[in-house]
Simulated scan of single mutants.
Amino acid sequence: MRMSTWIRQHLAALRALLVLTAITGIVYPLAVFAVAQLPGLHDKAEGSLITVAGKTVGSSLIGQSFTDKHGNVLAQYFQSRPSAAGDGYDPLSTAASNLGPESIVDTLDSDPDKVKLSQLSTVCARSKEVGDREAVDGSRPFCTKDGVGAVLSVIGPRDTDGEVSQPVQVISVNEACPTTPFLDTYNGVEVECAKPGEDYSAGRIVPIYGDAATNTPVPTDAVTASGSGLDPHITPRYAAIQVTRIAKARNISEDQVRTLVDAHTDGRTLGFLGEPRVDVVELNLDLDKRYPLRG
């Protein structure tokens, strides 16, 4: 008796399942594992781990924070790019902040734990911090001198274009009272500080460019996190502004530090992909090896 079409189809499907399971579930993983054991590939397959005196201290593929237990920057180390992954560079919480260029208004609250900074104020605060630490100008357009977003809520009747031609109240929405606002007046109206918890979205939100130069010494990678939050690299430009601090902390010359930076600077991948980059983890370990901090 001939088998029915239904049975033949299911037997064929079962054979295909078994064959594909053997190939993709057994043969392929074993082949990949075997290739990964070849000389030159084994270390990468294991996570590009870095060991010092037999102890694993990190990975050349994952950034680290070089701070003390209180989160203060350790002056003898190059600082990494900011990270939004967990508490910083957490491989189990790899993520970005998901804040974009339209995030310019902070959420203010009388409880500091409930304050939520916008992307603009985050960038402004980081830029000021880096500028103060590296003794360079950390001012940026749309930032106040105190490192928050320079943004106003202009309240008043609007014209057909949505502009407020005659404001009746102007609030610096990112500066909580009793802070003195970064501007005294706007269109003849006194600028007020923001009361935590108040909603000023009824006004027209106006970012103020300010007088800061666009070519700030503090580069973008010093104030923004990478998409993964795990990036171990910084730009040569960010490394360059840290050289003086490192040399002073380790009591060595700036030329000695620059030589190490150059040694740990990689060019564009395949000569045209991406940008030159400096691996901070490997650079700091090399600094400790060659120029250990003296007590």
Rank of each mutant, 00 (worst) to 15 (best):
S4C: 10
W6F: 14
W6S: 13
I7P: 00
I7A: 14
R8K: 15
Q9R: 15
A12N: 13
R15T: 12
L18A: 15
V19Y: 06
T24L: 15
G25D: 07
V27A: 15
Y28E: 11
P29N: 10
L38H: 09
G40V: 10
H42L: 13
D43L: 10
L49G: 04
T51I: 02
K55L: 09
T56G: 08
T56L: 10
S59N: 12
T67H: 08
T67D: 08
T67V: 15
K69P: 02
H70P: 00
H70K: 15
G71R: 07
G71Q: 06
N72K: 14
N72L: 12
V73M: 08
Q76K: 15
F78C: 06
R81Y: 02
R81F: 04
A85P: 05
G86Q: 11
G86I: 12
S93F: 09
A95R: 13
N98S: 14
D106L: 06
L108I: 09
D109C: 08
S110K: 12
S110A: 12
D111C: 08
V115E: 03
V115A: 00
L117Q: 11
L117R: 08
L120M: 14
S121L: 07
V123I: 15
R126I: 07
K128W: 01
V130T: 07
D132F: 00
D132L: 13
R133W: 08
E134V: 02
T144I: 05
K145Q: 15
K145A: 15
D146V: 12
D146Y: 00
V148F: 07
G149Y: 05
G149K: 01
V151S: 04
L152F: 10
L152Q: 05
S153V: 06
S153G: 03
S153P: 01
I155V: 11
T160D: 14
D161S: 14
D161M: 13
P167D: 04
V170D: 07
I171E: 00
N174S: 09
E175H: 01
T180P: 01
L183Q: 13
T185A: 08
V189Y: 06
V191G: 04
C193M: 06
A194T: 01
A194D: 03
P196W: 05
E198P: 02
A202L: 08
A202I: 09
G203A: 09
I205E: 11
P207R: 10
Y209H: 13
A213V: 03
P217N: 06
P217E: 03
V218E: 04
D221A: 07
A222W: 04
V223T: 15
S228P: 11
S228V: 11
L230D: 02
P232D: 03
I234N: 04
I234Q: 00
T235G: 08
A239D: 05
A240W: 03
I241N: 03
I246W: 05
I246D: 05
K248I: 07
K248C: 00
K248Y: 05
N251M: 04
I252W: 02
V257W: 01
R258N: 14
T265N: 11
R268P: 03
F272E: 01
L273I: 15
E275K: 14
P276L: 14
P276D: 12
L283Y: 04
L285P: 03
K289D: 13
G295D: 14
